[in-house]
């Protein structure tokens, strides 16, 4: 019977929640204020977004997503999920290396993925704050190799991170420029 309930729940989600086009110009997403000129992004209803994070997509969440992780307080996981205890948590004394690993572990859990390559971790200034940028690859349970670009910082003890991810083949490069511009120019209050 629970199967029937599951299907009905899915239908309700699908039926009621709609994707919305993201307007050009300045947009407030979580704590972030971001600017986009490209009319390519759709905001994903929370029922469809991984970890219930505010998320945008160009071609559908199986193909690309830009997720905004904002205002994460000491002791909290990065995502809103029912099995919270299985997710690693943020601590406000974390250095960028530790945050980079936290993000990767969260992605590994959320997408049931194996981290296949950890690329560069570099300093990046976000909204005038010292932060970091990270690139890595992971293999999801559908055997697709995906690449992620992450930009983030800790402000007033709270973690603020944006994650862009897409299949390494075609989709990552296609919109990486837009995503990166948006991330590096993001503003925080």
């Amino acid at each position: 019977m629970s199967r029937v309930v599951f299907i009905l729940a899915l239908l309700l989600l699908t039926g009621c929640e709609q994707y919305q086009q993201v307007k050009s110009g300045r947009n407030e997403v979580g704590s972030f204020s971001v600017t986009t000129e490209a009319p390519i992004w759709n905001s994903v209803p929370s029922g469809h977004s991984p970890g219930s994070l505010p998320t945008w997509t160009v071609d559908g969440v199986t193909l690309n997503s830009l997720s905004f992780v904002s205002g994460i307080k000491d002791g909290s996981p990065l995502v809103t999920v029912h099995d919270k205890s299985k997710y690693p948590v943020f601590h406000s004394d974390m250095l960028p290396n530790e945050i980079a690993e936290l993000v990767q572990s969260t992605v590994a859990r959320l997408f049931t993925a194996t981290i296949s390559r950890t690329g560069e971790l570099k300093p990046l200034t976000i909204s005038g704050q010292p932060g970091f940028e990270l690139e890595f690859e992971f293999v999801t349970d559908d055997e697709v190799i995906r690449r992620a670009f992450v930009g983030g910082t800790v402000k007033n003890g709270e973690l603020q991170v944006v994650v862009f991810q897409a299949p390494r083949m075609h989709y990552f490069e296609k919109d990486f420029g837009h995503a990166r511009d948006l991330i590096v120019s993001a503003k925080l209050p």
């Binding site: 049931t112 993925a113 349970d141």
Partner: peptide, 9 residues
């Protein structure tokens, strides 16, 4: 829901 990668395999 095995919380693991490799579902396909």
């Amino acid at each position: 829901q095995g919380a693991s990668g490799g579902a396909q395999l």
